[in-house]
């Protein structure tokens, strides 16, 4: 029922906002152009055509056409005249995403971007990355959907996206949880916050190992070490010898100077 209400509200807002006229003007802006421009992969592959025969492009396009998208690489427009010289009077290029930027692209762009950052740099500038990957405190929602705040505990737990790709867990997650009264701060762990699961404290191991990052956004190390100095927290495959060689400080937190296998 509530979703029907949402749909009706959305359509209502849409109906109010649809202009009574103006469709013709808008349609004119996207009409025309050679048929090759309507190929789904045209955006991704047009660079080769430009390099082979830029003169053909210059019949209609001016420098501004290229720079509408290629903000991070203006050199691609070298050789194109500016629109001010009288060219491209009726050509309007609107910045739009290439075909591979499917709706879930934002969630899985990491690997292609890491493999070939120069491809992204053709259209994106550093600011585009840093706006999300180094967000400031006044940034409003953009990446996350509208109801994210209410849904984020589960989405963080089940890795719908990786929080640490953009947020420092101490500065962002823990600080906000502290302000919200959610952190334990080393208090005893019998306060009953996880009240929907009877016996949770005695059987929290599975939940913790599945998403330890969620636990540590509220719990400090001393919460866990209260018991786990005595009860071994290491799971299957734990290579203590390796870690002792790499950095014995972590081991000495619990084992002191008597690190198993140590000298």
């Amino acid at each position: 029922m509530t979703r029907i209400r949402a749909l009706l509200l959305t359509l209502g807002v849409a109906a109010l906002l649809v202009p009574a006229s103006g469709g013709g003007r808008l349609a004119a802006q996207v009409s025309g152009g050679p048929s090759t421009h309507r190929e789904p992969t045209f955006l991704q592959q047009h660079g080769k055509s430009v390099r082979q025969n830029a003169t053909a492009c210059q019949v209609c396009h001016a420098r501004e056409s290229c720079l509408e998208c290629h903000r991070g690489m203006p050199s691609v427009a070298d050789g194109f005249a500016t629109a001010a010289s009288g060219r491209a009077m009726n050509v309007t290029v609107r910045r739009r995403a290439p075909a591979n930027h499917m709706p879930d692209w934002i969630a899985r762009h990491g690997s292609p971007a890491s493999a070939a950052p120069q491809t992204c740099a053709a259209c994106h500038v550093r600011q585009d990355c840093l706006d999300c990957h180094q967000p400031d405190a006044a940034k409003t929602r953009g990446f996350h959907p509208a109801g994210f705040l209410a849904g984020h505990p589960a989405q963080a737990y089940t890795r719908q996206s990786s929080c640490i790709d953009c947020h420092n867990t101490g500065q962002f997650c823990t600080d906000c949880h502290r302000q919200s009264g959610l952190v334990t701060g080393g208090r005893t762990l019998t306060r009953g916050f996880h009240d929907a699961k009877q016996g949770f404290l005695g059987g929290h191991g599975q939940a913790a190992r599945q998403s330890l990052e969620s636990c540590v956004s509220c719990h400090v190390e001393n919460d866990c070490l209260t018991c786990h100095r005595q009860f071994k927290p290491h799971g299957r495959g734990f290579d203590g010898e390796r870690l002792r060689e790499k950095n014995p400080e972590m081991c000495s937190t619990c084992h002191g100077t008597s690190i198993p296998g140590g000298p």
Binding site: L212, P233, H234, L243, M250, C251
Partner: peptide
């Protein structure tokens, strides 16, 4: 596949988090 990443100055890696 996602496996939590912890630096070695933190104790959390010793709690053997599992992959998703």
């Amino acid at each position: 596949r996602y496996r939590p990443y912890f630096e070695l100055w933190s104790i959390w890696g010793a709690f053997s988090p599992v992959a998703y």
